[in-house]
Amino acid sequence: MARKRGRGMAACWYGIARTATVDRAAAWAEIDDGGTVKIVTGVTEIGEGILTVLAQIAAQEIGVKPDDVVIGDNDTARAPEAAHAGATRQTYMIGNVVAIASREARGRLVDVMAKTWDVAPETIRTANGEVWAENTNHRMPMAKAVEHCKGRGVVPVGSASFGTDTTGLAPTDGAGRPWQAYVFGCQVAEVEVDTVTGEVQVLGVWAAHDVGRAVNPKGVEGQIEGGIVQALGQGLMEDYQLKDGRTTTPGFAKYILPTSLDVPRVNSFIVEDPDPIGPLGVKGIGEPAMVPTIPAMMNAIYDAVGVRIQDLPATPEKVLMALREKERRDAERRAAAQAAE
Rank of each mutant, 00 (worst) to 15 (best):
Q338S: 06
E327H: 02
E332F: 11
V291H: 12
E30N: 09
M290Y: 15
V291I: 15
R324T: 04
E45F: 08
T167G: 13
E327M: 06
G212M: 04
P295A: 08
Q230I: 05
M1C: 08
R329S: 13
Y182A: 00
G284N: 03
E122R: 15
G34V: 09
V112T: 08
P217L: 09
G227D: 03
T123H: 13
G245R: 11
G49M: 02
A289Q: 01
G34Y: 07
P80F: 10
A340K: 10
D75R: 11
Q180N: 12
D32R: 14
A58G: 09
P66M: 05
R177V: 06
E104L: 04
M321N: 11
V193R: 03
L280K: 07
G168H: 12
A55Y: 07
Y302C: 04
K283T: 06
Y255K: 03
A133R: 00
D262T: 02
D23V: 02
V229M: 10
D244Q: 14
R246D: 00
V69E: 04
G42Q: 06
N299M: 07
D32M: 12
D111H: 11
G176C: 09
P279H: 11
L280F: 14
G281T: 10
N299C: 05
A208F: 02
E325D: 14
S102M: 05
I277F: 15
I277R: 10
E317R: 05
A77T: 04
A77I: 00
N74D: 06
P250C: 00
D262P: 01
G15N: 13
V291N: 07
G278M: 07
V110K: 08
A105Y: 14
A87L: 13
V110T: 14
R78D: 04
K318A: 06
A11I: 09
W13H: 12
W132V: 02
E221A: 03
P156V: 15
S260P: 00
I71L: 13
V263D: 02
N299I: 04
A331Y: 04
K326I: 13
R18F: 09
C12W: 12
V202L: 13
S159M: 13
P316F: 06
I94Y: 00
A10H: 07
R308K: 13
Y240V: 13
V271Y: 11
A77E: 13
G168A: 12
V202N: 03
D173T: 05
G158V: 04
R334S: 05
N137L: 12
V215I: 15
G219H: 13
M93Y: 07
G6D: 01
V193C: 06
G174W: 03
E192I: 12
G176M: 06
A336D: 11
D194G: 12
